[in-house]
Amino acid sequence: MENVVEFTNVTKKFKDFSVKNIDLQVKQGFATGFIGANGAGKSTTIKMMMNLLRPDVGEIKLFGLDYMKHEKAIKERIGFVYDGNVYFEGLNLKDIKRIVAPAYKQWDDTLFYQYVEKFKLPLNKAMKTFSKGMQMKASLAIALSHHAELIIMDEPTAGLDPIFRRELLDLLQELMIDGNRTIFFSTHITTDLDRIADYIAFIQSGELVFNQSIHDVAENYALVKGGLDLLDRDTEKAFIHVHRASTGFEALTDNIKAVKNIFGDSVAIDHASLEDIMYYLKGGIHHV
């Protein structure tokens, strides 16, 4: 399996924040969801992927190529969608296309107009009159019209209404039918991922906690519920984090086997949702 994006030991420090030792691989032909709380380092990572930021340490390769030597070749193959509108807001879509299209060797006008029609986008209205959802659709239409192999999206679903969010996810799913295309998108809405992501990369406080297939995540993590009397210093070691309430405890584990060995049938083991995992991992991995 080939990696479209490869981060090797990447570190970027800011005054009050840093992303540290990121080793991230994005596999070709799959959709990877990039999750993490606000301020966890998602946008920084995506900016480094786009070469808007350069890492202090480490190596970043896209399509096996280095930005130092192959910046244009790499960007030809990427379609990007950002959280906010980056297009000139006073211009209409037609003029924006006039500016963006000649930048790409593989720009496909027919395809662009197909998307414009599909998304019902007005060509002659200024971008600033577009709703958030329309701006997203316009960015997407531009990102998809040059046969990009890798689509990078920073929070594409943020601020969208539920109906359009589903439409967008369906559309991304459709795009994935073409087996060569890779999608990497960040989100903090975990339910987006269940629908389309094949892989989940989870970042927290600037560190990559895991990057696994959605299947593995489901298999590796579980939510355990039981009576408080079961907990003691030894048994707690099987958990990543324990939440105590008067009615009993709820805990996250990444070692289901150990939990089964220790507690047997005295606890209930449930599937842990991504949100559960994010919630319990908050504050770093530490065994209580």
Binding site: L52, K72, K75, E76, I78, Y82, V86, A103
Partner: peptide, 18 residues
Amino acid sequence: VYDEKVETNILLNSLPYT
């Protein structure tokens, strides 16, 4: 007036230009 905006720089740098 356009190019001093961060968004414009993000756009130009995301397109295949060095």
